[in-house]
Structure formats: structure tokens, C-alpha cells
């Protein structure tokens, strides 16, 4: 049965992160995912720790952090520290390339992303085993490095990826995938990953499919404005191959992308039509959202993530949706 999770980002106000985590715990929602906003002055690992420390039943996933913005040893030890706080049962590390525009703003050029994610995963697992590592390729350099904190326990690693090559890599080596993108793309993405799992060295492993789309509880028409900015940002960052997989008309989306890059998010959001919203956002009242979430189970999704932007009042929207989900389930 598909599970419900709550999504937050590290750029949100801390009180909202904790309020929504409380919603999750109160309604027996198993997991909170924290997406990293690499341009915001908050540490995603510290944010994750505050949830793990305060809410003893919640599972926390980072969805996602990029191995291109930190030294790989930092990610390894932050993840290990969080796993330890969560008793090696309540933490999942999500890796992804990162938002291309955010990376550009930080002066980071993305070269060979598939190699970067593959190498990062291999190195992290080796570090957690306490191996002494020397590695000098691409984005990562280590010289006789040994993690002295190593517990020999691996945190699950999920990939937050979209393009076909990275989806196949997820199926090949990760423990799960966090999918985002147009709705028509989701089923195809699951299919690609499943093919890669079948061909991998561990085809029988317990692989998880997580779906994280912009979601908004709509009580009035104005609530849809909340999500237009998010959609403009997401579409501006979505690779062309993903749009093709989704069967989206490139021209429909291209104008939004061009205006975004030339004039910014506010102007681009004005071009988001109801038709585009329908293709990329989970929206409606509680029943409509829950029913739509449930339909993704048929596509192979194990877990669906609610929000952001949630609705006019995030905590209220979270509560209402969670209550409806419990009744519906």
C-alpha cells in the first residue's frame, strides 16, 4: 500500500519545518523528507538532526543533497552522524545532481553527472565501512582517508534524478529513487528504473519508489498562485529529455523557460496555464489529492510526498490532508 510522507525544504522557516514534522508524527506518517535549498542559509543536516532529535518515531530523509556542493567526506560523516542519532533505522540519504540553476549561481559546472553520482555512492559506502581510500577522479579526491567514526552500517541511499541515464543508474546501484516531473513521465520513469534493477547485481533488493511533486490543497482559486512560482522554477530546470518522456509539447514549456531565464520567476509564473498545472501539480481538495496520490500506486510508486507549497496555511493543509488520508486508508 502506498505510504504518505511530508516534504519540506531547508530554505523554509524552521518553525514551519517543525510544525509539519509534528503533523507527521501526530498522524503516524512515517517520514519527513527535507530537500536541500543550496542557496539558503540553513544546514540541511542540522535541520534533519532537529527533527530526528525531537520526534523519536519519525524517519527523516534528505531529498536530496548534491555531492557537487560539498566535500564527499563531509556528506559521509554528516549522514553517519544522522544515522547514529536515528539508531540506524530512521535516516535515509538522498543524492542528486542538484538544481542546475542553483549550481550555476554557485559557480559549479556539472560535468559527467552520472560518474559523479556513481563515484559518490561507491565512496560513501566504502567510507561507512571504514575502508582506507585513495581516489582521484572527477569531482572527488581522497588520499589514504579513513573514516574513524565508521560503524560498518550503510544508510540507505536514494537518488533524486530525472533523466533516463541517471534513472538507469538509480536502478543499478541505489536503494530507492525520488521521482519528480510531469505526471505522464512518472510511469515511464518507473519502467526505466525497473529495467535497470532487473539487470543489476542485486535485482531482488527492496527498492523504493518515492514520488515528490508540487502539491497544493486548493480551497479557493487564489491558492493556485502559490504553486505557479514552484512550477515555473521546476520547468525551467527540467531537462528536455524528461519533457520528451512526459510527452509534453516542448514549445508549450519552452516559452516559460525562456521568460524565466530572461526575466525571472514572477514573469514566468504568469505563463503557467491551468493545462500546465494539471500536468505537473497535484491539486484539489483533500479527497482529490488523496485519490490522485493513490492512483500512482498502480505505476509502482511506494511513497507519495505532500508539499510544498501545501496550501494557504501549510500546517492546516498538512493536518487536513493527513486526517483525510487516515480515514481514506
Amino acid at each position: 500500500m502506498v505510504q504518505l510522507a511530508i516534504g519540506v525544504t531547508s530554505g523554509m522557516r524552521l518553525e514551519h519545518i517543525l510544525e509539519l514534522s509534528q503533523v507527521a508524527e501526530r498522524h503516524d506518517i512515517k517520514r519527513v523528507w527535507i530537500g536541500e535549498d543550496i542557496t539558503a542559509p540553513h544546514d540541511v543536516f542540522v535541520s534533519a538532526s532537529t527533527i530526528l532529535l525531537r520526534f523519536k518515531k519519525l524517519h527523516v530523509g534528505i531529498g536530496v543533497t548534491s555531492p557537487l556542493v560539498r566535500n564527499i567526506s563531509t556528506i559521509a560523516r554528516a549522514a553517519e552522524s544522522l544515522s547514529e542519532i536515528g539508531n540506524y533505522e530512521r535516516f535515509t540519504l538522498g543524492l542528486g545532481v542538484g538544481g542546475l540553476q542553483d549550481l550555476q549561481r554557485l559557480g559549479i559546472k556539472v560535468v559527467k553527472p552520472r560518474d559523479a553520482l556513481r563515484d559518490a555512492t561507491v565512496l560513501l559506502r566504502a567510507m561507512w565501512k571504514g575502508k582506507t581510500l585513495t581516489f582521484n577522479k572527477g569531482n572527488f579526491q581522497l588520499r589514504l582517508y579513513q573514516a574513524r567514526y565508521a560503524s560498518n552500517r550503510e544508510a540507505p541511499i536514494f537518488f533524486g534524478v530525472r533523466g533516463p541515464k541517471l534513472l538507469r543508474l538509480a536502478g543499478e546501484i541505489s536503494d530507492g529513487v525520488i521521482l519528480s516531473g510531469p505526471k505522464t513521465y512518472v510511469k515511464k520513469a518507473v519502467h526505466l528504473v525497473r529495467e535497470a534493477i532487473r539487470e543489476s547485481e542485486r535485482p531482488a533488493r527492496n527498492f523504493k519508489f518515492v514520488l515528490w511533486l508540487p502539491t497544493v490543497l486548493v480551497e479557493k482559486a487564489a491558492d493556485l498562485k502559490l504553486v505557479r512560482n514552484t512550477v515555473a522554477y521546476v520547468l525551467a530546470d527540467t531537462p528536455r529529455k524528461v519533457l520528451e518522456l512526459a510527452g509534453l509539447e516542448y514549445e508549450e514549456v519552452n516559452e516559460i523557460r525562456e521568460v524565466y531565464h530572461k526575466h525571472g520567476i514572477v514573469w514566468a509564473s504568469k505563463l503557467i496555464t491551468p493545462s500546465v498545472l494539471e500536468k505537473v501539480v497535484i491539486q484539489g481538495d483533500q479527497q482529490q489529492i488523496v485519490e490522485e496520490f493513490k492512483t500512482f500506486e498502480k505505476s509502482g510508486i511506494n511513497e507519495v510526498v505532500f508539499g510544498p507549497p501545501y496550501g494557504a496555511h501549510p500546517q492546516t493543509a498538512g493536518n487536513e490532508l493527513a486526517e483525510f488520508w487516515m480515514r481514506y486508508s
Binding site: 566535500n71 563531509t74 554528516a78 553517519e80 544522522l82 582517508y145 579513513q146
Partner: peptide, 13 residues
């Protein structure tokens, strides 16, 4: 220290 636990998370605990 690069070979030890991540200080900000330890500080949080």
C-alpha cells in the same frame, strides 16, 4: 575533523 563525526550535527545533539 574530516575523519570524524560532523560537528554541527553533534552540536545539535
Amino acid at each position: 575533523v574530516p575523519e570524524q563525526r560532523y560537528a554541527p550535527v553533534v552540536a545539535s545533539a
